[in-house]
Structures are given as C-alpha cells and as structure tokens.
Simulated assay, not measured.
Amino acid sequence: MDFDFTDEQTQLREAVHKWVEKAYTFERRKTIVANGGFDRQVWGELAELGLMGLTVPEADGGLGMGAVESMVVLEELGKGLVLEPYVQALIATQFLVKHASPEVKETWLGPLIAGESVIALAHMERGARYRLAPAATQAVEKEGGYLLTGQKSLVPIGDRADAWIVPAQHLGATALFIVERQAAGVQLQAYITQDGSRAAELTLENTPAQLLTKDGDDALQQAAYIGMASVCAEGVGVMEQTVALTAEYLNQRKQFGVVIASFQALRHRMADMKMQLELGRSMNYYAWLKLDEPVAIERKLALSRAKYQLGQSMRYVGQQSVQLHGGIGVTDEYIGSHYFKKLTQLEMTWGDSLYHLGIISENMQATAGVTA
C-alpha cells in the first residue's frame, strides 16, 4: 500500500501550515480565548482557504476531496491549537450533502461553505456518557412541522452557532433536525472549556425544528466516526508540536553546566515520547483509511482501536512533556501547558480510552483471525 501523499495533498498541507504559522499565532489565540473562545473572522479565513467545502462534491460548490485531505488539514490545525471546531463543519456538510432535502441544502450548504454560517452537532445528553442512542429529546409533529423538547450538553460553540443539528426520538426512532438559534423555546448556558474553546448547554422547549433525515441512527454513527478520526488527526498534530517543544527545551535548559538533553535518562524518555507519537500517527492513518470501510463492524472496531491508541499516546506525551519541563510546563503563559490541556481534552472527546477499550473487548473473538 502506498502511504505517500500526493502533490495535491502536500500542497494542501503546506497551505494550511502557512496560515497557522502566520495568521494563528499563540498571541492571537490568547486573545480569542479572552474574547470567548471562538472568532467568526477565523471561521471566515478557514472558508477562504476552501476548507469548509473540502469534502463537498464539486457539483454542490465544494472541492470534492476526501478523507485523507481532511486528515491532513486537521493535523495542521492541531499543531496550531486552533480553537474553532473545524470538525463541526466536516460533520455538518456531510449531513447536508447526504441527507438533506434540496430545500434544506439550498438554505444551509452554501452559507456554510462560504463561512457565513456556523452549524454545530448537538447530540450529547446528560447521563448518556458516550453512547449515541437513544436520545431522550423528543420530537412531535404539529401542523406540518416539528417541535422538539429536551436538553443537550457540551454543544461546541453552542451559543455562537447559527443552527444546531439535533437528534431526537420521533415515533420510536432517531431522527435528525435542524434548529435555528433564534427559534422559540431555545435556552443556552455558555462556558469556556479547559482548552479555551467554547461550548454550551442547550435546552429546547417546544422548539420549532426542520427535519433533516428520519434515518438518524446511521447518520449519527457516521458523524461519530468522523469525530473520532478528527480527534486522532488533531492529536497527532498537537503531539508533534509537544515533542518538538520538549526537545527544544531540553537542549536549552542547563544543569551542572551542561544541557539536560545530554542526560541519558531524559534521552530515553524523549525516545519513548517519539515512539508514542509514531504509534499514534500510524493508527491515525488507519482510522481515516477505514472511514469508508463497507463492513460496519470492522469500521466500528477500527475507529475504536485508533481512538484507544491515540488516547494512550496523547496522555503519555502530554504528561511526559510536563514532567520534563518542570514547573514551567503548567504555566499558562507557556504554550506547552496549552498543548497538555488540549491533549487531555482530546483523550476524553468522542469516547475516552476506557470506553473504546470496552468496545474492543466486547468484540474480541476466540482467535486473532490469523488461523482457521
């Protein structure tokens, strides 16, 4: 199998890398955090790069690219600790392209690709842990439309989104609906998360909604797979920067008149960090290559395997970086502490390591599959 990136994928990586390096500095990021953890201007800049329509077919106004291109972009955004949740754009555009009616697609897809609107998936509920279904939120049909009642937690950029994609129970099955922020019966409680990004608790009370698809279970599961793979890609980018920052620090910090990078014990720990990064990188590739796997159980296990390994790698790299830095490693003014917080939060996003280990364990067979 050829794991080399094409010229087009390499150029895409370089374009995003240059934008992160020049336009999304650590100082700008701190300003965004101070202003609430989300910047519409940055959202528009991502759209100007063509990223909002990256996987949208050309016939619908996008670039028509695929999973590997998405992975490349997310790795680079991870390196820059970009707060704006680009994965929400990937999920929303996939929902609209694959499941929306022509009328719904016309209303929302164009503005989303142009960076003029923000749509977030609001699927998490209290007590559900990482399970997707069944949702406690209820939908009732009334006068040709739908009314939703329920609560959603940890909605990314919840109060800054123009609309949310909301799973709800309708006639005993999960359906997906679009709810506009200005709709009646919407209540929001916003807050900043540990990595500096923005989220909200969303309460709906007889809130008007537009049906997206009645086939909600499959669509929501595919969104979860995209989310898991995205965490893996972001994690690789953050780990890569963390390893580089730690190596730079060890080559500058001196004890007993010599740089501490010359200490054999610390060199071994750096080697272990690098090994965990490369383990995570290979499983990240595995996750994205399995996104379109036709066998459902194999796709499910592949994403859980990847998320578990990335969870272990991110935890190890983040913790070792703090240990090797010492006190400065947890100082808010130092970027290393923000890498650590991001890695810790990513490990718990779209299912933590124990959750995915449980899925893998439940589906283990009597043999490893290499013998009859």
Rank of each mutant, 00 (worst) to 15 (best):
T207Y: 04
Q88L: 13
V166D: 00
E278L: 11
H123Y: 14
R281P: 01
A223Q: 02
T55W: 04
K18N: 11
I91P: 08
M275G: 03
V140N: 01
W350M: 14
I32F: 00
I335G: 03
G80A: 02
V330R: 07
R267K: 15
A122N: 04
T137M: 12
M1G: 15
R181N: 13
D332Y: 08
E106K: 15
L291M: 13
Y225F: 13
L148R: 03
T149E: 00
E143A: 06
H99W: 11
F3H: 11
E234L: 12
T25D: 08
Y249I: 06
E116K: 15
A190C: 02
V16K: 02
Q319N: 14
A47S: 12
A302E: 01
G62C: 09
S70G: 15
Q88C: 12
Q345M: 15
W164A: 00
S313E: 06
Q88P: 10
G127H: 01
A136R: 13
A229K: 03
L12T: 07
D218T: 12
A247T: 12
A244K: 10
V97Y: 10
F256N: 11
A261R: 06
L51V: 05
T93S: 10
Q323M: 14
L188C: 02
M273K: 07
G336C: 03
D215E: 14
Y146M: 02
R305Q: 10
K290L: 05
L303E: 02
I192V: 02
A372M: 09
A287V: 02
V259W: 01
R28A: 09
F38Y: 13
L148G: 03
A224H: 13
L291A: 05
E103A: 14
S262P: 01
G216K: 08
L46I: 04
N284S: 15
V56T: 14
G329A: 01
Y146W: 05
V104S: 08
R181Q: 13
G37A: 04
L250S: 07
D215R: 10
Y225P: 00
E205Y: 03
V295E: 13
V104A: 14
K300S: 09
I260R: 08
